Simulated assay, not measured.
Amino acid sequence: MAYPNAPEAAPRAGTRSNGLAIASLVCGIVGLLVFAIILGPLAIIFGGVGLSRAKAGAGHRGMAIAGMVLGIIDVVVFAILLAAASKHGGSMYVHFG
């Protein structure tokens, strides 16, 4: 049933959402804490696709760039930890002194 004096719905904004940019940022942040080898490359890929969508007018360009940077940091930190572990025979225990 329609109401005769009901206001009309407001028109939707013209910006489109960029879910891959958001996914890139989330993967980059979570990758700093756990599963860096999986989430780091995903953040880079999602960020690249999100950045191309942002150039096409989808928005969230900054999130896509931040996700890519965090993904690169994830991979670099994982490589450093892997190198440190292999230097110490696979153990991350470091004795100071």
Rank of each mutant, 00 (worst) to 15 (best):
L42A: 13
L70I: 05
P41M: 02
I45Y: 03
R53Q: 15
S52T: 13
S24N: 06
A13I: 11
M63V: 00
S86N: 10
M68N: 05
G19N: 07
L25A: 02
A23R: 06
I38V: 14
R53D: 12
N18P: 07
I38H: 11
I44L: 12
S17L: 14
K55L: 09
I29C: 04
I37E: 10
I37Q: 15
A13K: 12
I72E: 01
I44W: 04
K87T: 07
V49Y: 05
L82H: 14
N18H: 09
A64Y: 02
G19T: 10
T15Q: 15
H60M: 11
L70P: 04
M63N: 01
F46W: 05
A79S: 07
G14F: 13
L25D: 03
A36T: 10
I44V: 14
M92R: 07
V30I: 11
G71C: 07
R16D: 13
G47S: 05
A56T: 11
S17K: 08
H88Y: 08
V30W: 13
G59Q: 03
N18G: 05
I80V: 03
I44C: 08
Y93Q: 13
V69G: 06
M63T: 01
G59M: 12
I29V: 06
M68C: 03
T15P: 09
H88T: 01
A84F: 13
A36M: 10
M63D: 08
M63I: 00
R16S: 08
L20K: 01
V26Q: 12
A54C: 00
G48M: 04
A21S: 13
C27H: 15
V77L: 10
V49A: 08
L32M: 09
V26G: 03
G89F: 02
I80C: 09
F46M: 03
I73C: 12
A66M: 12
F46C: 15
A58P: 00
G40D: 04
M68S: 07
G28D: 02
I45H: 01
A58T: 04
G59R: 08
G50L: 05
V30L: 10
L82I: 10
G19Y: 14
A66G: 02
I22P: 09
G47H: 00
C27Y: 15
A79I: 04
